[in-house]
């Protein structure tokens, strides 16, 4: 128990928590949307995120962006990485839907079977980066973690004692919140968003009213995937690293965040992600940091025991609230 260091650095720790939490929140969106519409945990979503991080690495490598790049290059590389990561993640998410989920939906299989195919997809995707691509292209693919040289230079905007707000903090937190609000508006205001909400409320009635259920489900996977792509870029900006197994812990934490906020609830994902991030940082400061990854699970169990619908309640159908 190390209360002193927690209290003394409270501002810095909170900022650090928000910083982590914003990435959790973006990944959590993918879980929450798929769950809201299909009542199914998309286990392969963590690998959708992982593919995004590798895409960012690919874009930087192709453009030759690195630590010494000029301002224009930094902006161009980051923007292009963002677009490519979103596209790649969305494609993978859509691919998983088409290959693994759609045939099962046609057979009306029970949820357990979806879970197993998702685990299969997840394993196949992880191994693709951990081994298969290495066979064909060699490094940097493989089991070793890869460094992603972020072209962005960290510079402190505000510095008061231990508290240090950098441009990277601002980019990550603001970026995450902006993306969340964009998605929230899209689901609440647009025509397609109305379809998504309709299917989430009642799939049968929605299809009677002329909503194309298959198209809505594809849309949900694409949107969730794109958000995972954004998360992937922000993650690489934060940690400068990726690996074939980068998705695993992220997936578990993001899922915890989704449940914490109320699964199926878009705003819940944001709240859940940020709270989880802060809790994690506080507890790692209080206790030994080797227990860091236990907190997410403990929070999850406590939430499910005392408030199984999450903090903001579930249901994408009632997204307008």
């Amino acid at each position: 128990m190390d209360f002193d260091s927690l209290i003394n650095g409270l501002g810095g720790h909170t900022l650090d928590g928000l910083f982590r939490g914003s990435v959790y929140a973006l990944v959590a969106l993918g879980y929450t949307m798929v769950y809201g519409v299909m009542r199914l945990i998309n286990f392969a979503h963590s690998e959708v995120f992982m593919v995004g991080t590798w895409t960012v690495l690919g874009v930087y490598t192709v453009l030759g962006a690195g630590e010494g790049s000029g301002t224009m290059m930094v902006i161009a590389a980051t923007a292009l990485a963002l677009v490519c990561a979103m596209a790649a993640s969305a494609t993978v998410a859509l691919g998983v839907e088409r290959i693994a989920y759609r045939p099962l939906r046609k057979k009306n299989a029970p949820p357990l079977i979806f879970l197993i195919t998702a685990i299969g997809c997840s394993l196949a995707l992880m191994e693709t980066f951990g081994y298969v691509l290495k066979v064909f292209f060699g490094e940097p693919f493989g089991r070793a973690p890869v460094n992603i040289p972020s072209p962005l230079r960290t510079s402190a905007l505000i510095e008061i004692g231990d508290f240090r707000l950098t441009n990277v903090h601002v980019l990550v937190i603001v970026g995450a919140i902006v993306m969340m609000f964009a998605l929230d508006t899209f689901v609440n205001k647009s025509r397609i968003g109305r379809g998504v909400r309709a299917v989430a409320q009642d799939p049968d009635t929605a299809s009677l009213m002329g909503v194309n259920q298959d198209r809505v489900i594809m849309m949900v996977f694409v949107l969730g995937g794109a958000m995972a792509g954004v998360a992937a870029l922000l993650y690489t900006v934060q940690y400068d690293i990726t690996s074939w197994s980068a998705g695993f812990l992220m997936g578990i934490k993001a899922f915890t965040a989704a449940v914490l906020g109320g699964i199926g609830n878009l705003r819940g994902a944001l709240v859940g992600g940020l709270i989880l991030g802060i809790v994690e940082v506080y507890f790692s400061t209080l206790f030994d940091s080797s227990w860091q990854n236990v907190w997410a699970f403990i929070v999850l169990v406590l939430v499910l025991m005392f408030r199984p619908t999450g903090l903001l309640g579930e249901s994408l159908g009632k997204a307008r609230a």
Binding site: A100, L104, A109, T117, I119, G120, S122, Y131
Partner: peptide
């Protein structure tokens, strides 16, 4: 050796899709 986890993942998907 190293192909096994990949093959396992693919096999899981194939078996479940063909024979849930």
């Amino acid at each position: 050796q190293e192909w096994r986890p990949f093959a396992f993942g693919v096999a899981l998907v194939v078996v479940m899709v063909m024979r849930p």
